[in-house]
Design a binder for these strands. Sequence first.
DNA 1: CAGGATTGTTTGCCTGGTCAACAATTATCC
DNA 2: GGATAATTGTTGACCAGGCAAACAATCCTG
Lengths: 155, 155
Amino acid sequence: MKLAQMKTVEDAAPGVAHGCMDDELGFHLRRSQVAAFKHFGQTVTAAEGITPGLYGMLQVIANNSGLTQSALAEAMDVDRSSIVKVVNQLEDKRLIVRDASPTDRRSYCLRLTSFGRNELARIEQAVTAQDREFSKALSEAERHTLIGLLKRLYK
Amino acid sequence: MKLAQMKTVEDAAPGVAHGCMDDELGFHLRRSQVAAFKHFGQTVTAAEGITPGLYGMLQVIANNSGLTQSALAEAMDVDRSSIVKVVNQLEDKRLIVRDASPTDRRSYCLRLTSFGRNELARIEQAVTAQDREFSKALSEAERHTLIGLLKRLYK
DNA sequence: CAGGATTGTTTGCCTGGTCAACAATTATCC
DNA sequence: GGATAATTGTTGACCAGGCAAACAATCCTG
């Protein structure tokens, strides 16, 4: 507990105790997610220039072609106003378009461009590779167990 | 009657497909963490007025009494300058103090006040209750399995 | 003792989220 | 049919929480 001893240790937080947080799921959830985010940034974002958030949006648009910005907001559990910037970014990158809705002149139908489809196909490979690399400490069976447990958390 | 807006809200994204993200660990990690954060906010933060971040800092200080702000920054994997605001907040709430270090006049030794100890004890109960409530879909064995798998991810 | 590290702090900036307001449009109800 | 309510996208103000650079005070090293 002496300061002098703590300062001599120089690795990333080796000696700090976390108390009862060691048995709290939320704590480990947060740490894992931060680590995953960092790993994504060092690989996919560095190579493809796309953030986890943008990638998620792109996937949802790709798999629900023609959906509305409000629907996207609801699917992402985020405010409608937050969607605007993201859609702008994706449109600026020529990955998606705001198509006019044939039935509602207020809303847009979000769709991938053909360029966006090609890009996504490439990025997808990078992301799945990154995901497997990130979880390389786990066997494939353990990885699926983990995903299954996580799914049950937010259902 | 506004029946038109009875779109299921608790289940984010009722009909949206996620494509290959359904098999990506990072995706589920993020969703789980967001859900955990939200749950924390609706229970602990609403009742005790403390955020997950502040709670984590408080726990690390409590379990490593006398540690330096730089040590705290390293333990939290965050910039030194980010620590300042947090320590200010905790000090404003009279939960911790910046003690003068006996060996280094540049740095402070962070310690809980006795009030802070009492508060933390109470908050701890709320947090562990919240954590168990959040993971109520899992058995105790599954919860520990999950924590074990998560630990191996960021080690 | 001189010069280089370290500590806490301030400042500025970015990202990503909320909220309130608003015009255009659509839906509802009498 | 027409008044009224609800929805859609957008903007602007705001806030939390990160980083990076600069800085004075203090330590450490040679």
